[in-house]
Write a protein that binds this DNA or RNA. Structure first.
Lengths: 383, 383
DNA sequence: CTGAAAGCGCTTACAG
DNA sequence: CTGAAAGCGCTTACAG
């Protein structure tokens, strides 16, 4: 407890502010009153490495060696120092160690166009791990089309050593190029292809879309519409493949007219759903590549007097807050976003430490489990 | 970048390790080879406060003042420094700050039942200021009914010195009691009544609801429905009063049947809207106390074949992401959530510093400006 | 309103 | 095996 000074009686204040002076070697009485004594800046009265050194009769350097477990210290000396440490209850000041040793890692988190629920979950996970590892997290926002590379570059020149990129930036070539050119370690969320310095954290999007489609088919639906995600993101492609394969494995034909293109926004979901429901033979179920587009689909259906799920089954993907906000609540794929960002920070820490230790380490791919969550928006087709 | 040195081609190494020396004033060629040049200890090539100072043509001290938001810096000087910070991509080294400045402040942010858009905006503002002031932000979630006090108490015993409470926790008496009993400084968002250690950051909810209602009335609406917020939160009461007064000032009668109770959730909005539209003489406009309930109202209207805004005007409150997600986009009151959380952190920092310096400081109330944002969901009534 | 000096507590780079 | 010096990047306490 550093300075809540005022909460204590005056003698506490004295002990806090004057003792350090005495310790620093000034006499117990004033020498010259015209020599202004600068106030001590000592903030806490925790013992320092110098206190330990004095107690043990060695130099601070030797204490430093002991606490860092270096082996070039005589056993006898080490014992004395250990005893002093123990008797004073000394703990090294980590801020000082980072500063002197250059240890603190600075990680940049750059985001753009990410929906709010996903972002807040993502931030929470990243924050948690950062404080755990004493990492400095630098969070910035950018615009995909406008200034993504510029912001990324500025972060790097500002001392960010590693980058965390949630979608859609994780698939933006211009940003990736900036990272690769500068040999900056990074973790891409929901992307593909780990490279030398670039790792990936994801779920199995193919399998998730596959299982959802199989689930819908198992309810008895024969015509299952699909709203894709932004074709610039790799997950969109993989989810589409999962959908296609599931149809095949269910003995259902793959009809192109049942596939509408979306770009992960509510608005795009509105258009796609209109297209699907305007079909001469509209689908009895629609699987949208995220919850926003599924919500839009429900809205379109309801405007047309269709009941969800009685007249139309609608399923989403992500399990963001929206899934349980709307009515009926969405059957969807749960992505463990908090865990994903925690995992991403973990990877980055390992990677940076390895680099600092001069070890090479390939980029990795971490895949977490998804869950199909069944709520109220699916039902067997109306005969 | 401390040690990855060996991973770079030689010229990279040179630029990494030698530049700092040149910057430090050594000549471009060796002077005396027998005068051994001590190697730089510079660990990263991130810009430091001195780099910024040089760029801006001021002393490091002035830069320090700017980044710490102290007010004794000339506006012009501040601008120059800000520009230098931006152009260099400077981020303060948090280890150095803690070491020099004494103890790091630990602020707790406790949230519960907050919609995702609001939360992410709130987190972003809080994070920004925290990193600016080198504060350790501890974020926790709790359940209002279940464990709010317990979680709050645990945070305090874990070393959190000050608390940030967004709604609805900012109005939860049990939590406030925990804070008051422990003399913990806190900032309540969108609440009332600052107390000795408790400050408040808010907008003028009364005035905002007043202006929105006046706006709707000015379009020609005579029967304006109102969906309240959770009656446990003070903002709900204030918004209702604003609505009532605006009706009076517009020469419109206040009819109780036009006021339906909601609790800020989409589901509650669904019910309230049903109630309003089932009225024998339904309103031609509905003003909901947040965007979620307004979105629900639009959904109900559309299901009944009403066009928004042609047949029904619907307005919201908050201007969260949802407002521009749905169609038609919502006319709503913009709350500057990011600024509010920034302001809240500012207050907390000042308060903690004051306490540490032994100064007493009363709780304050900061009121930020709202904006009425007109989009697509309002229109004159259909005669 | 601004800056020069000292110092936070440790480690690196040297020298013995 | 040990220590004296310099420095990490900031802020505090002063002085103007």
């Amino acid at each position: 407890m550093p300075v809540p000074v005022n909460r204590f009686a005056p003698y506490r204040v004295l002990s806090l502010r004057l003792n350090p002076l005495y310790n620093a070697g000034s006499p117990a009485w004033p020498i010259e009153s015209n020599v202004k004594q600068r106030q001590s800046r000592r903030q806490r009265n925790a013992p320092t490495i110098s206190d330990v050194a004095r107690e043990a009769g060695v130099s601070p350097m030797t204490v430093s060696r002991v606490i860092n477990g270096e082996d070039n210290v005589r056993a006898k000396t080490r014992e004395t120092v250990d005893a002093a440490i123990k008797s004073l209850g000394y703990t090294p000041n980590s801020a000082a160690r980072s500063l002197a040793g250059g240890a603190q890692i600075k990680i940049g988190l750059l985001h753009s166009n990410l929906n709010a629920s996903y972002l807040s979950a993502f931030l929470i996970g990243a924050l948690e791990q950062s404080s755990r590892y004493n990492i400095q997290l630098v969070v910035e926002h950018c615009d995909v089309a406008l200034n993504a590379e510029a912001v990324a570059a500025r972060m790097l020149s500002g001392g960010v050593e590693a980058m965390l990129l949630p979608p859609p930036l994780s698939d933006l070539p211009t940003v990736l190029e900036v990272l690769e050119n500068s040999d900056t370690p990074a973790v891409l969320i929901a992307s593909e292809q780990p490279r030398s310095n670039i790792s990936v954290v994801k779920i199995d999007d193919y399998q998730a879309a596959y299982e959802m489609t199989r689930h819908i088919a198992s309810l008895g639906h024969k015509r299952i519409g699909f709203i894709t995600g932004d074709c610039g993101q790799q997950v969109s492609q993989r989810r589409l493949e999962g959908y296609r394969q599931a149809l095949k494995d269910s003995g259902l034909p793959v009809a192109d007219e049942l596939i509408e293109e979306g770009i992960f926004t509510y608005r795009s979901g509105l258009n796609a759903a209109e297209g699907l429901l305007n079909l001469k033979r509209p689908p009895s179920a629609i699987f949208a590549c995220n919850d926003e587009m599924a919500a839009a689909t429900i809205s379109v259906a309801q405007r047309r007097g269709l009941d969800v799920p009685r007249d139309l089954t609608v399923c989403g993907f992500d399990d963001t807050a929206l899934a349980t906000t709307i009515w009926p609540e969405l059957t969807t794929i749960h992505q463990p976003v908090v865990d994903m960002s925690r995992a991403a920070v973990d990877l980055l820490v390992k990677k940076v430490r390895a680099m600092r230790a001069g070890e090479a380490e390939q980029g990795q791919q971490v895949q977490l489990d998804f869950t199909l969550i069944r709520r109220r928006s699916d039902a067997p087709p109306r005969t």
